[in-house]
């Protein structure tokens, strides 16, 4: 019974790891969508940060975006973002490179005029796109490996212990 449980746990761990790869892609895509929406709002409605944060709440796949909110004591987007990041760090599947792009975006957004912001958003979008492509390639290479690896690892332990 214990061995079957062990096999189940190993398989689940492998599947979870594979699922994390998919979630990373979804979260990066949600962030990219938010960048696009903010850029559009900036251009067409001149929306300020508190209003933009309302829009980012629609990024259901990305917990850090869901937790972005403007508290009365907050004085910058950067502060809101780092609080949200702290709250959701464990739920996020970002790798260090993804965090660098996200940190850069939320630290710099809104700090220059429209023209500068459009260039900045374009740069961020390109970086996110590259991260998504890299994440998809990684998932293609390693997704099935993790899922099968978990099961095989469990099976190996199962056989050894038998």
């Amino acid at each position: 019974m214990g061995l079957i449980l062990l096999l189940g746990v190993c398989t689940a761990a492998g599947l979870l790891k594979a699922f994390e790869l998919k979630r990373r892609i979804d979260q990066l895509k949600a962030l990219l969508l938010t960048v696009e929406q903010w850029e559009r709002e900036m251009e067409f409605s001149n929306a300020d940060i508190p209003r933009l944060m309302g829009i980012s709440g629609e990024g259901k796949d990305c917990p850090v975006l869901m937790h972005l909110r403007y508290e009365p004591t907050d004085r910058s987007l950067e502060a809101c973002y780092f609080r949200a990041k702290q709250e959701t760090y464990k739920e996020m599947c970002f790798q260090s490179d993804d965090w660098i792009v996200a940190d850069r975006f939320f630290s710099q957004f809104g700090k220059s005029g429209t023209v500068g912001q459009k260039d900045f958003c374009r740069g961020i979008r390109a970086q996110l796109q590259a991260q998504i492509e890299q994440a998809e390639a990684f998932r293609l290479r390693h997704g099935k490996l993790y899922a099968a690896g978990g099961f095989l690892c469990g099976m190996l332990v199962f056989l050894l212990l038998i």
């Binding site: 900036m42 001149n46 929306a47 300020d48 940060i49 508190p50 933009l52 004085r75 910058s76 987007l77 957004f109 809104g110 700090k111 220059s112 005029g113 429209t114 500068g116 912001q117």
Partner: peptide, 19 residues
């Protein structure tokens, strides 16, 4: 710098005309 960005509600671009 911090106060300037705060006065612009974090979005300097949205106050371009005033600035």
């Amino acid at each position: 710098d911090e106060m300037f960005h705060f006065l612009c509600s974090g979005a300097v671009y949205s106050h371009s005309e005033e600035i």
